[in-house]
Amino acid sequence: MRKMMRRPLAGLIGLALLAGAPALAQDPTPLQPTEILHGRFTQERILTGIATPLKSEGSFVLAPEHGLIWRVETPFAVTTVMTGNGIAQFNGETEMVNLSAAQAPVLAHLYQVLGGALTGDIARLEERFDVAKSTSGNDWQLALTPREAATADATQIEAIIIRGSRYIDRIEIAKASGDEDRLIFHDQTIVSEAIDPKDAELLDRAGAK
């Protein structure tokens, strides 16, 4: 159960950073509290000692006032949900994992660290990370490195590179272990409407034990 959980988690780290979309040339523009971002992703995990990257594909829903739903469709179907209350994982209707923030303090710390990115708040990110910004025309890049050892120890993140134009297009995450995650995002849309009731129910279940 724990092994299955680790794979979608890397995607969640990236997805939490996605809320900077849409973006202009200088900085990501925050996703508004009433807006919901939908899209699809392709993820590659490069693991030390394994020659071939592990690939997965799926879709996501990101709602700043509720949380984040990360649905892996291939090579296996699993849905991971993350909110301020905790994290849950489902295989179809079957709940496989459900941990409160108190039960999983490392995940709670990660959620706090990435909370600024979840709302597109670069100033909040700068409280935990050194953020180097660069632009080229309408394309931009953010390079994040943990400012404190505690942040790096808790998240196992050494560096994050975020690239985008109108939306965030790509995220690269380097881990202390030497592993890497590459996430490519596409078919992104923003809607200003109430969250789907089924999605809201999933988000409410995360950490509700």
Rank of each mutant, 00 (worst) to 15 (best):
Met1Ser: 15
Met1Gln: 14
Arg2His: 15
Lys3Tyr: 14
Pro8Phe: 02
Gly11Thr: 01
Gly14Tyr: 05
Gly14Asn: 04
Ala16Ser: 12
Leu18Gln: 11
Leu18Ser: 05
Ala19Ile: 00
Asp27Pro: 11
Pro30Thr: 02
Leu31Thr: 06
Gln32Leu: 14
Glu35Thr: 04
Glu35Trp: 09
Ile36Phe: 01
His38Arg: 13
Gly39Trp: 00
Gly39His: 05
Thr42His: 14
Gln43Gly: 11
Arg45Leu: 08
Ile46His: 14
Leu47Ser: 07
Thr48Glu: 11
Ala51Phe: 11
Pro53Glu: 04
Leu54Ala: 12
Leu54Lys: 03
Lys55His: 12
Glu57Met: 09
Glu57His: 08
Glu57Asn: 14
Gly58Glu: 07
Gly58Phe: 04
Ser59Pro: 06
Phe60Met: 12
His66Cys: 10
His66Asn: 08
Gly67Asp: 05
Ile69Phe: 01
Arg71Ser: 13
Glu73Tyr: 06
Thr74Arg: 08
Val78Met: 09
Val78Trp: 00
Val81Lys: 00
Val81Gly: 04
Asn85Gln: 11
Ile87Leu: 05
Ala88Gly: 06
Ala88Cys: 03
Gln89Tyr: 07
Gly92Ile: 07
Glu95Ser: 01
Met96Phe: 09
Val97Gly: 05
Leu99Pro: 01
Ala101Phe: 01
Ala102Lys: 13
Gln103Lys: 10
Gln103Ser: 07
Ala104Asn: 13
Leu110Met: 09
Gln112Tyr: 07
Val113Trp: 06
Gly115Asn: 10
Gly115Thr: 05
Leu118Cys: 11
Arg124Phe: 13
Arg128Ala: 14
Asp130Gln: 10
Val131Gln: 02
Ser134Tyr: 10
Ser136Trp: 14
Ser136Leu: 15
Ser136Gln: 14
Gly137Lys: 00
Asn138Trp: 14
Leu142Lys: 03
Ala143Pro: 08
Thr145Lys: 00
Thr145Glu: 06
Pro146Leu: 09
Glu148Tyr: 13
Glu148Val: 12
Ala149Cys: 11
Ala149Asp: 12
Ala150Pro: 04
Asp153Lys: 13
Ala154Tyr: 06
Gln156Lys: 11
Ser165Gly: 12
Arg166Ala: 14
Tyr167Arg: 03
Ile168Lys: 00
Ile171Lys: 01
Ala176Lys: 15
Ser177Gln: 07
Ser177Pro: 00
Ser177Asn: 08
Arg182Ile: 12
Arg182Lys: 07
Phe185Glu: 07
Asp187Trp: 02
Thr189Phe: 02
Ile190His: 06
Ser192Val: 09
Asp196Cys: 04
Pro197Ile: 01
Pro197Phe: 01
Pro197Leu: 03
Leu202Val: 04
Leu203Glu: 06
Arg205Ala: 09
Ala208Arg: 09
